[in-house]
């Protein structure tokens, strides 16, 4: 009786999980894998093969877009870590108890603001008639308005801005757990500031660093708005290619191929990151 009830409740709890993961995650992913393997040879006539993938690798524009997206994503992740770490350390270890909570909350504010609003804010600041150009002009520092949008540096600044919070938050929560006695011991044993940083702080913060890097990288590689709005028409971003194939050209076979490649590529990077550092997905990304 009790066991039957246990089974029944297990079944009832399993149903939503299976429907969700099965219908919204697993089957759709198989679906794009399937579409990526088929090739249109006539109306509702398809043949199957790797031609779409071959097309991708033979077309330098597509290939280079993926490489460019990958390269910028890695650069943005590294920048976010380098810029974010001192801020996270300040919040976790140096700020006074009371200002710590306030600083942490301030870090979270942009998290609640849509990407769209943030990108729009950058546009208002950086475009030719924008705030920065106008102010510099008034101050006499420049003589003609400058267009600061539509170049790679701006795209990178905007991307770092969009993702850096996801780097800082896991870093702060890891660093907060570090006992200051560890640092004192390091100094007492004659370690220089750099040695203490390299041998004590960084190893201690490793789970936070890995979690932050994974989330940051995934978000950057999958981002759409920031590169498109700040980079303009020629931003050559990979998600933009996917959108163009799907919606503008209605070439679902090519679009699905690009989607599969992006997913494989990001999964590969995440997997490599986890392997190199000996972490798992459950201990990094899911750790509230």
């Amino acid at each position: 009786m009790g066991r039957d009830a246990g089974r029944l409740s297990l079944f009832l709890l399993f149903t939503p999980f299976v429907l969700w993961i099965g219908l919204l995650i697993v089957l759709p992913q198989i679906g794009i894998g399937y579409v990526s393997l088929r090739e249109k040879i006539g109306i509702n006539e398809f043949s199957f093969g790797l031609k779409n993938y071959a097309d991708f690798f033979n077309e330098p524009i597509y290939r280079n877009t993926l490489l460019r997206t990958a390269w910028i994503s890695i650069l943005v992740t590294a920048l976010a870590l380098v810029i974010g770490f001192p801020v996270a350390y300040y919040i976790a270890k140096i700020a006074k108890e009371r200002s710590r909570a306030a600083l942490f909350l301030m870090c979270l504010i942009p998290l609640w603001v849509s990407d769209l609003v943030r990108a729009y804010g950058w546009i208002v600041l950086l475009r030719e008639t924008g705030v920065i150009s106008t102010v510099l002009l008034r101050l006499g520092i420049i003589s003609t308005p400058i267009e600061m949008l539509y170049n790679d540096v701006t795209v990178i600044i905007g991307l770092v801005y969009t993702v850096i919070l996801f780097m800082i938050v896991p870093l702060v929560s890891t660093l907060q757990g570090m006992d200051d006695a560890l640092l004192e011991a390091g100094y007492n044993l004659g370690g220089s500031r750099f040695t203490v940083f390299r041998r004590i702080i960084v190893p201690y913060a490793m789970p936070g660093i890995v979690a932050g890097c994974i989330i940051t990288f995934m978000l950057t590689a999958g981002s759409y708005l920031t590169p498109v709005l700040l980079g303009g028409k020629n931003s050559s971003w990979f998600t933009e290619q996917i959108y163009n194939q799907f919606i503008t050209r209605y070439n679902w076979e090519a679009g699905a191929t690009f989607g599969v490649l992006l997913l494989l590529f990001t999964s590969l990077v995440v997997w490599a990151g986890l392997m190199l550092t000996g972490q798992s997905l459950a201990t990094t990304v899911a750790k509230d």
């Binding site: 993961i21 995650i25 759709p28 995934m218 679902w252 989607g259 997913l263 990001t266 997905l281």
Partner: peptide, 22 residues
């Protein structure tokens, strides 16, 4: 459990097209 976390690491654009295709 890992499968439950996976949706977080699928880029949103891909989630969108996969559901569209399916």
């Amino acid at each position: 459990y890992i499968l439950m976390i996976v949706p977080l690491v699928i880029p949103g654009v891909i989630l969108g097209i996969s559901i569209l295709v399916f």
